[in-house]
Amino acid sequence: MSSLVLMKILESAPARYEAGMRLLSLGAIPRAQQRAASLAVPTPNTRVLELGCGTGAYTRALLAAGARVDAIDHDPAMLEQAALSLATPLAQGTLVLRETTAAETDALADDSYDSVTASLALSEMSGDERAWLLRQASRVVKPDGQVVIVDELRPKLRWQRLLLVATRWFTAALAWLVTGSTSQVIADLEGELGAAGLEVFDESRSMLGSLAVVAARRCERAERAPLEQEAA
């Protein structure tokens, strides 16, 4: 590819990510993030692990709800953008930003967070990565805590699925050009959560059924196998 064309698309991605997402979703994404924040932060001072914080749009909603947030992302440019817009909570100590991959969450202690949450991060991951991350989320969240996901899911109604298939190539191309996002619709998040030992207790949808806020908690009946055994 022409390096100029590629770099011009990529270099401006962090700065225009939030505005692009807001525009492309006609405001549905910020509304979904508000809803997710209210589920992930039931009381002030809830300790939250945010996976894939990007430029910090959802982080702001979590902080506004009263959370103390540990936010991770692997992309230094996105984190730098987040640090610029979240300088106050960083200085106050209610927010910690870490440059690390989701795959390195295995270093976190068991039962260490009240909530684990992610907005538009899982649909950017491969199936392997998502499965790994959800197992880690299930492990690090406290038994009475919750895992809250905002993401692009396959709609439940048939006509909505048909509409999604018909328009997906166009919306995906537009999203890549505007925000640099390369998300893929998650076909069965509930099943993937179940495989990680989590059960859904709340779900709401918008954008013709394709944008979901899903809240899950640890399934007490599930005997969670050691990670190495599951992966093998």
Binding site: L6, H74, A102, A103, E129, L133
Partner: peptide, 29 residues
């Protein structure tokens, strides 16, 4: 993951980075 971009362009643009390689090695099995 290199976001579907060829190796050289992705590596130069930060799409194929240390983070992606660690992720793939740890989560692929």
């Amino acid at each position: 993951s290199s976001r579907g971009i060829n190796v050289w362009c992705a590596a130069a643009g930060g799409m194929l980075s240390t983070a992606q390689v660690i992720t793939a090695l740890k989560t692929s099995g």
